[in-house]
Design a binder for these strands. Structure first.
Length: 848
RNA sequence: GUGGGCGUGGCGGAAUGGUAGACGCAACGGACUUAAAAUCCGUUGGGGGAAACCCCGUGAGGGUUCGAGUCCCUCCGCCCGCACCA
């Protein structure tokens, strides 16, 4: 009798309601049980989920369900990264209020996430735009201030002219704003900074302990922090007439060994000395402007020639009396690094070489391969360390290795008090002021007599006013008629609120900690955090490798320093999943065409309805502009959440990009129907004989799937489940085998991936308890043991035969068996055996 | 430029230095059906052969090893990060 098809439209909502009603995934602290905290990067409430969300949250969900079944007390929460520019853009474009827009989006996306059947603890839901949440952010900021982790200073900032706000260095990509894509300008503004550089050294060294982070992410953070060990020292300066000036020129270098090869000094166009000189030097002033106009984008840097402008001043060589190094303002020296100055050693640095060649400056070799000569006239010699190079033309350094010369030079500068060893970092402090409305208000007040006054904690939260307008550019908070006018908490005089809001990356830098105690009156309840933190498995996109993941590591330290947390590394294990990609097509006129409208005809791609020729545009990340987006809601409606989940996990390893294909989705759907048929057939079968082959397959499957899920190898786990299903199907066909264990195991092993089908199937198999309350299956070691093993037989490394032998067979035992094999004798062809190699239970290789 | 990753059938991809291509998709052949869909059975890296079986094969070339997709060297190609960092 044919079984009715599995109807996801009935079954999926049914089980989703069941899980909600039974509070199946609500987490409670229980110190008697091991905890497991699994977290996916929470979404920005854009309004609809996309396939990237489906993939991300499916992976986390499989881990959560698997760990729960395996006996862990699982915390798997969800929330909303709800502040940010798109809400304001919607307000400006459509006249809706950011708050209403955001909460509508949250409601819509929550409904969609629920339709995925995620094992989430919704009782812990948080939204960062909720004063319940951001009041704690404000309180912690005040604590950070007291701890010296906050600074307000006027600085050159990255100004995004489209979003009309400041961006952090991390948010400027190729000279453009990470969100708007507009060329970033430099502006001087008073800004709030979080002193992330306090932890430069620690954020770097602690990366070594993050064993379960991708090497790639650790390297990216390492390069971003950018530690270098060098020497800072200063030159005496003189004017064109040789008069000693009172100012000295401070430089930072990592190549102090090459000081005798110095032939010029270069200063950033933004260096204070250059600025001062340019006030009375129009040529220099023009040069400064041309450098500023060039920008720092990738193309510009590649094209830009080294350019300098002589300052008419000279630095006195510290070890060679009478040697004078001309000073230049140069376009390749950055003000933001070191001292904003360098001494140029053209013989051993590519940029310095370019510059010296252009301006006819001396190129003096001071390092050479040991015992050899070197020609640096055409290109610099770049040996930086090792013992195979020696110093030359360098007086007291001659003959030393590079490292020995550095040490000697550092010693001499330190002895004379004109320099010191210095560790330098590329990492800058985190500018967090944003001139936006839809963000967390910065809880300070500006008073003309008291200066900066933090808002007293009793007055928190500083709530965003809702009656704002978006009719003019800039910050609506600044335009609000009354909000910013307050009395100074200290002297009661008229004062003004800070109208900047926080960078939204602050919101996401501690939400994982808030999930431990989302309703606590303090930012984080210490007992709850002690139990749940850190996150055992964090999953998200690699695009957050630096921004979010570095800020969060800083925040954990800052919160620990202020007593809000007691853990320095928030994410024990990190996994960065690949993107969801899909084919693209373009019409002759250059418009993107929906993949559904493209078809192949005589090997050429044409439009389904118009017949117009199409070009294949490659398989790319799903994006609206390329019209290659597949809406998860449609897929879930048509095929069900289990199909979407199964597809996302099948075939492609989770760290790689996965291509969405309709055939793949249909394949997943067919497999669901197939399991359904197998389960129903198995449920109807009575008795039958135990079959050792099936039982061994069953237990090997448990073993393999368990290991694969522990290691996030979802695609392999799925391949194992297919094998078990194939074995079960073959056994059912025989009609005389007891298939119950195999069928039940199939259901339980696939349950983390296809939870709805698993629940229905489990009930069909006669179980009263739900799968979510059922333990992960256990292996029987006796069934994992194989007494026979098939071993390949090679002759001179080529496979010629295979033999089935008892496991653990010795060479003495197997040799006569193998040497009697016809295929082996034929391959040997009468030649004498030189060597007989047995790798136990693996392979035999006969060398002749 | 620099740091990292990757290169395996028509496709996605398996493979602790030990029988390359598990598993899936697609394709093809067959069964069932009036027919189609669904389902089931089978074939599917290339070449040779009636078959047994043989030869070739993991980007290219070399090396280490009894044995290399895996380790080492050189080269080619693709992808990602950073980018004038002194």
């Amino acid at each position: 009798m044919a079984v009715e098809r599995y109807n996801h439209r009935v079954e999926e909502p049914k089980w989703q309601s069941f899980w909600t009603e039974t509070k199946a995934f609500e987490a409670k602290e229980d110190v008697t049980r091991p905890k497991y905290y699994v977290l996916e990067m929470f979404p920005y409430p854009s309004g609809r989920i996309h396939m990237g969300h489906v993939r991300n949250y499916t992976m986390g969900d499989v881990i959560a369900r698997f760990r729960k079944a395996a006996g862990y007390n699982v915390l798997h929460p969800m929330g909303w990264d709800a502040f940010g520019m798109p809400a304001e853009n919607a307000a400006m474009e459509r006249g809706v209020h950011p708050k209403g827009w955001t909460y509508d989006n949250i409601a819509a996306m929550k409904k969609q996430l629920k339709s995925m059947g995620l094992a989430l603890d919704w009782s812990r839901e948080i939204a960062t735009c909720d004063p319940e949440y951001y009041q704690h952010e404000q309180a912690m900021f005040i604590d950070f201030m007291a701890k010296g982790l906050v600074e307000r200073r006027v600085s050159l900032v990255n100004w995004d002219p489209v979003d009309m706000t400041v961006l952090a260095n991390e948010q400027v990509i190729d000279g453009r704003g990470w969100r708007s894509g507009a060329m970033v300008e430099k502006r001087e503004l008073a800004q709030w900074f979080l002193k992330i550089t306090t932890y430069s050294e620690e954020l770097l060294s602690a990366l070594d302990g993050l064993d379960n982070w991708p090497e790639k992410v650790r390297l990216m953070q390492k390069n971003w922090i950018g530690r270098s060990e060098g020497l800072r020292f200063s030159f005496e300066l003189e004017d064109a007439q040789g008069n000693l000036l009172t100012d000295r020129l401070s430089v930072y270098t990592t190549r102090h060994d090459t000081i005798f090869g110095a032939s010029f000094c270069a200063l950033s166009a933004d260096h204070p000395l250059v600025k001062t000189l340019s006030d009375t030097n129009t040529g220099l002033n023009d040069f400064r402007k041309s450098v500023a106009a060039l920008g720092t984008s990738e193309e510009n840097i590649e094209k830009a020639e080294k350019q300098g402008h002589a300052l008419g001043l000279y630095a006195r060589h510290p070890f060679r009396a009478g040697v004078k190094l001309p000073l230049y303002a140069a376009n390749f020296v950055l003000m933001g690094y070191g001292e904003g100055t360098i001494f140029g050693c053209p013989g051993h640095d590519q940029r310095d070489h370019d510059f010296a060649t252009k301006y006819g400056l001396p190129i003096i070799p001071v390092v050479a391969p040991r015992g050899e000569s070197v020609d640096v006239s055409k290109q610099p010699y770049l040996e930086k360390d090792g013992e195979n190079a020696e110093l030359i033309n360098s007086e007291f350094l001659d003959g030393m290795s590079v490292s020995a010369a550095k040490a000697e030079m550092a010693k001499r500068f330190e002895a004379s008090g004109t320099g010191e060893r210095r560790v330098n970092f590329r990492l800058r402090d985190w500018g967090v002021s944003r001139q936006r409305y839809w963000g967390c208000p910065i809880p300070v007040i500006h008073c003309t007599s008291c200066g900066i006054v933090p808002v007293p904690k009793a007055d928190l939260p500083v709530v965003l006013p809702e009656d704002v307008t978006f009719d003019k550019p800039g910050n609506p908070l600044l335009h609000h008629p009354t909000w910013r006018h307050v009395d100074c908490p200290t002297c009661n005089a008229k004062a003004e609120r800070e109208t900047d809001t926080f960078d939204t990356f602050i919101d996401s830098s501690w939400y994982f900690a808030r999930f431990c105690s989302p309703h606590a009156k303090v930012p984080v309840d210490p007992e709850a955090a002690k139990y749940w933190m850190g996150v055992d498995q964090y999953i998200g996109g690699v695009e957050h490798a630096i921004l979010h993941l570095l800020y969060s590591r800083f925040y954990a330290r800052a919160m620990t320093a202020t007593g809000h947390l007691d853990i320095k590394e928030p994410f024990k294990s990190l996994f960065t999943q690949g993107m969801v990609i899909h084919e693209t097509y373009k019409s002759v006129s250059g418009e993107w065409v929906l993949p559904a409208d493209a078809k192949q005809e005589d090997g050429k791609w044409v439009h389904v309805t118009t017949g117009e020729a199409l070009t294949v545009g490659g398989i790319e990340k799903m994006s609206k502009s390329k019209r290659n987006v597949i809406d998860p809601e449609n897929i879930i409606e048509a095929y069900g959440a289990d199909t979407a989940r199964w597809f996302m996990l099948s075939d492609t390893p989770p760290e790689r990009d996965i291509e969405w294909t309709s055939s793949g989705a249909e394949g997943a759907y067919r497999f669901i129907q197939r399991i359904w048929r197998l389960v129903n057939e198995a449920a109807e079968m009575q008795g039958g004989a135990a079959d050792l082959t099936l039982r061994k397959l069953t237990h090997r499957s448990i073993e393999a799937v368990t290991g694969d899920l522990e290691n996030l190898r979802f695609n392999r786990a799925i391949a194992r489940i297919y094998e078990l299903a194939n074995g079960l199907q073959a056994a059912i066909a025989q009609k005389s085998i007891d298939v119950r264990e195999a069928a039940e195991t199939l259901v339980l092993l696939s349950a983390p991936m296809m939870p709805h089908l698993a629940e229905t199937s489990w009930a069909v198999l006669g179980h009263k308890a739900a799968v979510v309350d059922t333990a992960w299956p256990k292996t029987d070691p006796a069934l994992l043991f194989e007494d026979m093993v098939t071993i390949g037989v090679q002759v001179n490394g080529k496979r010629r035969d295979e033999v089935s032998v008892t496991k653990g067979i010795t060479q003495a035992e197997i040799e006569p068996i193998v040497m009697a094999r016809e295929a082996v004798l034929r391959s040997l062809d009468g030649k004498r055996v030189k060597k007989f190699i047995l790798v136990p239970d693996r392979i035999v290789n006969i060398v002749c």
